[in-house]
C-alpha cells in the first residue's frame, strides 16, 4: 500500500495528533511511514499542515503537488489552500466550521466558510463534509474534531486504514480515560451525518 495524506488546519486544532495516529496505525501494520509538519512560529494561529506518507520506496517526507490520495481539512479555507496537493480523483474530507483570522476581524472583511465549501463542491468529486459544530455537540466534547475527521476519512475508504487500525493506535498513544470518547468520535461518521456533498 502507498498512501499520501495531507492534513491541514489552524494551529491548535489537533492536526498533529491525527497525523501521529495515522502513522502509528500504519506502523502497527509494518508499513514504513514518513511525515512532516509545521513547527515553530508558524504554529501560532497560523495555517498548519502535516504530510503523511505510507509505503515502500519513499525518499522524502514531503508530498508534491497532485500527489495526495486524501486531504483531511480541519477548516474549510485551509482545505482549499491545500487543494493543489490533491491528485486527480483524490478524496477530500473537511470540517465545514470556519475560523476567522484576526486580520479579517480587524479589517472588517468577511471571510465565508460557505464560500469555501461551495468551491470544494465544484472542484472535488469525492468530498465528505463534517459538520463539526453539530457533531461535537452530539458527542458532548469540543476536543474530538481530529477523530471525527479521521472517522470520516476511514469511511471514505481513501485512507487505506480501518477503524480498528486507528483504534489500536489510540490505545497505544492516548490515556485510557480518553478512549471511549475518541472511539465514539471515530465511529460518528455515517453517510447521513457526513454527506458526500
Amino acid at each position: 500500500m502507498n498512501k499520501n495524506i495531507v492534513l491541514c488546519g489552524v494551529g491548535g486544532q489537533g492536526t498533529v495528533l491525527a497525523s501521529k495516529l495515522i502513522a502509528a496505525a500504519a506502523m502497527q501494520k509494518d508499513l514504513p511511514v514518513m511525515s512532516a509538519e509545521t513547527i515553530g512560529m508558524a504554529q501560532r494561529g497560523g495555517s498548519v499542515f502535516s504530510h503523511v506518507r505510507i509505503g515502500e520506496g519513499i525518499y522524502s517526507p514531503m508530498i508534491a503537488n497532485g500527489e495526495a490520495d486524501i486531504i483531511i481539512g480541519f477548516e474549510p479555507g485551509e482545505t482549499v489552500r491545500m487543494l493543489p496537493f490533491l491528485k486527480k480523483g483524490g478524496t477530500v474530507v473537511t470540517s465545514s466550521r470556519k475560523i476567522s483570522p484576526v486580520t479579517a476581524t480587524l479589517s472588517g472583511s468577511s471571510y465565508s466558510g460557505d464560500g469555501m465549501i461551495a468551491y470544494l463542491n465544484e472542484q472535488v468529486k469525492e468530498l465528505y463534509i463534517v459538520d463539526a459544530e453539530k457533531a461535537c455537540e452530539e458527542i458532548g466534547s469540543s476536543k474530538v474534531l481530529n477523530l471525527l475527521l479521521l472517522g470520516a476519512a476511514v469511511k471514505s475508504g481513501a485512507l487505506g486504514l480501518s477503524e480498528e487500525d486507528i483504534k489500536a493506535a489510540i490505545r497505544t498513544r492516548l490515556p485510557e480515560k480518553f478512549h471511549a470518547l475518541n472511539f465514539a468520535a471515530l465511529a460518528y461518521a455515517r453517510p447521513a451525518r457526513c454527506p458526500r456533498k
Binding site: R44, G45, G46, G77, R81, L83, S100, P101, S112
Partner: peptide, 18 residues
C-alpha cells in the same frame, strides 16, 4: 503551486500573540 482557477480569497493567517 499551480494557479487555482476561481478559488475564493483565502484567509491570511500571520502568526499572532495568543
Amino acid at each position: 503551486s499551480p494557479v487555482q482557477n476561481g478559488a475564493p480569497d483565502l484567509p491570511v493567517r500571520p502568526p499572532i500573540l495568543c
